[in-house]
Design a protein around this nucleic acid. Sequence first.
DNA 1: AAGTTAAATAACCATATGGTTAAATAAAGA
DNA 2: TCTTTATTTAACCATATGGTTATTTAACTT
Lengths: 116, 116
Amino acid sequence: MPIDPLSSTFHALADPTRRAILSSLTTGEKTVSDLAEPFDMTMPAITKHLKVLEKARLIERSREAQYRPCKLRPDPLKDIDEWMEQYRQFFEASFDRLDEYLKQIQTKKEDHDDNR
Amino acid sequence: MPIDPLSSTFHALADPTRRAILSSLTTGEKTVSDLAEPFDMTMPAITKHLKVLEKARLIERSREAQYRPCKLRPDPLKDIDEWMEQYRQFFEASFDRLDEYLKQIQTKKEDHDDNR
DNA sequence: AAGTTAAATAACCATATGGTTAAATAAAGA
DNA sequence: TCTTTATTTAACCATATGGTTATTTAACTT
């Protein structure tokens, strides 16, 4: 069953271990053992997490003797950032002008109450 | 088992139906039936999706006679936007200076080939 | 050739997910 | 009060998830 790219990216990010792995890759390429080291988890578990990240194209892997270095890929993160765009105005407005926002809600509620 | 807020937000967004529901809520409050209408899916399925969105605090629900209107909540989206911040420079640099980036890769590869 | 190290695969397990149909609840309308 | 409308809950199902241990593969080291 083919999953759309945005869903597979969000799914990959919906796990603290995988987010920590990504974060650790911001400083450069790492081997699987390097990535596994901070976690109280077996290697196969890490391998599975890497597969999820790889399917989401959030990481790219190469070969270096018996090592399989992982590298961060920017594209899917950029796609998420673009998806966020439609909501950015919404949540920025909500926080920048919280008082006004709350007043709007209140007004709307009163209008609504009037309609009963 | 308590799940961290960022994970539950990403998880909630990792489904096209739920993202469509959120998108549809940008124009204002909607009832469950309103939200369900575009989808070829039964009501209980929609109810479940709404529960996931509600747990992630991406929506807020109220009561209006027999209706349960849904409203978008900005906070978790803002949290994601803030989480993205650590990667923004990374992916913006990668795309703004794609040529340079590719050249770097190429140089690195050549260095590497030299080492064999 | 034998041993070591890095990583992946296989097989398994418990729980979660995303859907269904059928039944229950809540409030409005006749 | 009876019926209709809006929504949720319950029970079920197939598949996915996130972990495990044991085994296998691949490449380097001795």
